[in-house]
Design a protein around this nucleic acid. Structure first.
Lengths: 182, 182
DNA sequence: CCTATCATGTAATCCGTTACATGATTAT
DNA sequence: ATAATCATGTAACGGATTACATGATAGG
């Protein structure tokens, strides 16, 4: 009913619910941890509030367990399903920024070599984690959605690009970094 | 005085002020448009409020024009300069996500080929804009800070990676995208 | 002189983060 | 049983986006 705008977080909730069916916010959290977490993390508290918000707009159905914990269980309504489909089927030209604190420090005069050391370390670990996740996906065979794999590969591409970029700076001192093209 | 935490936006303001000296928020906006804007945009209204906030913490000095518009002019205090230096000289292992709506749609089942079309278009334009900016930087020769160029090159690397990724999907229909490794 | 656009700012709203808190479940 | 960790949430706060609004400047 209320016409508050839908954010990316909204679509993450709608999309996850479409894939697993009725679930609690906590279920969504666990699911996100092995899927979107690599490129779009959403803290668990937001999943609770976002589910409630979407329910208010009749995009989700909300039920409560009769017994015990009385957890809230959410599922897509027809309206929610349509909102998701509309969003998904509309290609976007939106360009999102690669907001990276390491690059920001570099921009404002941080020491390239020192930054590169820390960043290479971190991105290397991240890349390994991605590779492990990829293996898991492969192990599960065909029942993992196409998009999961594609998004993971996209993320890994950027990780490799980060590694490439920082590698070029890792041996470079303060002075040499200034040198332009030969 | 008040001990509110400093955000990346704070450091952008501090950093820009270090480079141009005393300036109004509007000056900062114009400066950002030819420098950080490519990888970290900050809306102009935030520059006004952020300057005020930093002044309250004694990180910036605030003066007002005597005449006419009575614009506020900000400059770094010693405290501000030190805060910037501390932040900048501390390498970070922080990994920021590449939150991209196109990838998100892909993840949730958007059509790879359709998305690729729109995304290639947009990223292609962006890459061109980067190249033009790079030429401008080169034209200005040596008085453009080292970090500007490095950050721009980092951004361009990611743009090229986007192009590479979506290119791989542009000819792919709904069905073929499912095919794994041979 | 009138209009349009640029310049400059304020205020409200809302999302997202952080802090906190308690009920289950498992391990020892 | 008790401690520790996992599960499940609520509430406060603050930064960021959006909407609005008015004063200068330039073009016609």
């Amino acid at each position: 009913m209320s016409s508050a705008r839908l954010t990316e977080t909204s679509y993450i909730v709608l999309g996850l619910l479409e894939q697993i069916g009725p679930a609690t916010p906590y279920d969504l959290k666990r699911m996100a941890q092995v899927s979107t977490i690599n490129f779009w993390n959403v803290p668990h508290t937001q999943l609770y509030t976002e589910c409630a918000r979407l329910a208010q707009q009749d995009l989700l159905n909300e039920e409560r367990e009769e017994t015990g914990r009385r957890r809230r269980i959410y599922s897509l309504t027809g309206l929610g399903r349509r909102a998701l489909e509309d969003w998904r089927s509309e290609p976007t030209e939106q360009l999102d920024e690669v907001r990276d604190v390491g690059i920001l420090k570099l921009f404002f005069g941080g020491d390239p070599a020192k930054l590169a050391g820390a960043q290479l370390e971190a991105h290397g670990r991240q890349l390994e984690a991605c590779e492990q996740l990829l293996e898991q996906l492969d192990a599960n065979g065909t029942d993992v959605p196409r998009g999961w794999r594609l998004a993971l590969e996209a993320g890994m591409g950027h990780e490799r690009e980060f590694v490439r970029f920082w590698s070029g700076l890792s041996g470079v001192g303060f002075d040499q970094a200034a040198a332009g093209s030969a």
